[in-house]
């Protein structure tokens, strides 16, 4: 099972909202589409689902071209940001509607629905209406519905953005286990880099409808291919030093260390985060963020230094990464 996008382009009037997009999601892989709003990640998902048609390129599921197949026949399991549960049907009917339409016998419908309810641990809710469910419960029902579609590909559109932080943390491993167990490729759209790193095997960062970088979370973190990816991945944000002769230098807050000599700074603000603390420092290079352990004592006179191996360089015109070996 696999999903492949080849040179996908989508245009609204004369604007290309997605252009030259190539992606491949393998069996049992979860790919996160990450980017700010308007970067084309949700539009890409709609193209894969078949809700919109690409203006160029092909979409393949299991190496079969599905570009012109209607979503009705594409066998996609999708979870919408709004969950999109049918408000006039109770949970059991919400889940069985698709099965009934596809001609599954009633006894089999019941069995499968009960199975899915059990899987999502919402057996007791089967008679409730969507309006009587909490956000987390709705999310589970929406997921159960996607599972019952017996899909070839899972598409998740910001599935957790309407849930509170604690619930998200709870649901993450559960969601991952559930959807990856079936071996289908999963495309997970999010604007939250933290969620992308937690959920995905690989992350595709999109900007203005173009693929900025694709790779494992570790890879994106260690070697961001552009200043955009560098500032999008990792919180607190990377420190970016001003442009010197066409070169931007960037360094992660946790790579800055206190030392006896180096860059002199003044403490502007301190955030104590429990396991760590974040310092906002004023230096001749502008404001810098420094992340250190919460036990670490902060010297009166602050000098900071860092290992030159931790520096990232970007071209100040193109924003692209420049590898140190090529300097």
């Amino acid at each position: 099972m696999s999903l492949t996008l080849e040179n996908i382009g989508r245009r609204i009037n004369k604007n290309w909202i997605i252009k030259g997009l190539n992606l491949h999601v393998a069996k049992g892989e979860c790919l996160a589409l990450l980017g700010p709003s308007g970067c084309g990640k949700s539009s890409t998902l709609r193209l894969i689902a078949g809700l919109d048609k690409p203006d160029e390129g092909t979409i393949k599921i299991n190496h079969k071209d599905v570009t012109n197949i209607s979503p009705v026949n594409r066998r996609i399991g999708m979870v919408f940001q709004s969950y999109a549960l049918y408000p006039h049907l109770n949970v059991a009917d919400n889940l069985s509607l698709g099965l009934r339409i596809r001609g599954v016998p009633v006894s089999e419908q019941k069995k499968r629905v009960n199975n899915a309810l059990g899987l999502m641990q919402i057996e007791s809710l089967f008679k409730r209406f969507p309006s009587e469910l909490s956000g987390g419960q709705r999310q589970r029902v929406a997921l159960a519905r996607a599972i019952l579609r017996d899909p070839k590909v899972y598409l998740l559109d910001e599935p957790m953005s309407n849930l509170d932080a604690q619930l998200r943390e709870e649901l993450r491993p559960e969601l991952r286990n559930l959807i990856l167990k079936g071996g289908q490729p999963v495309v997970y759209v999010t604007h939250d880099q933290h969620e992308a790193m937690a959920m995905a095997n690989r992350i595709a960062v999109l900007k203005n409808g173009r693929l900025e970088q694709i790779g494992t979370p570790e890879n994106l973190y260690a070697k961001p291919s552009s200043i955009f990816v560098a500032s999008f991945i990792g919180r607190p944000q990377m420190n970016i030093f001003p442009d010197k002769s066409g070169l931007i230098k960037a360094i992660r807050p946790e790579d800055l260390k206190f030392s006896n000599n180096g860059l002199k700074c003044n403490l502007v603000h301190k955030e104590w985060l429990g396991s760590s603390q974040l310092l906002l420092l004023d230096s001749q290079n502008g404001l810098l963020r420094l992340l250190c352990g919460s036990e670490e004592s902060i010297p009166e006179e602050i000098y900071i230094n860092w290992s030159s191996e931790k520096e990232h360089y970007f071209d100040s015109n193109t924003g692209k990464r420049i590898d140190k070996s090529r300097q």
Binding site: A49, G50, L51, S70, P71, V72, N73, R74, R75, I76, G77, M78, F80, A84, Y86, P87, L97, G98, I101, R102, R145, R149
Partner: peptide, 10 residues
């Protein structure tokens, strides 16, 4: 809602 139904095969 309608899109969800389309994807479900209706």
């Amino acid at each position: 809602l309608e899109e969800a139904a389309r994807i479900e095969g209706l």
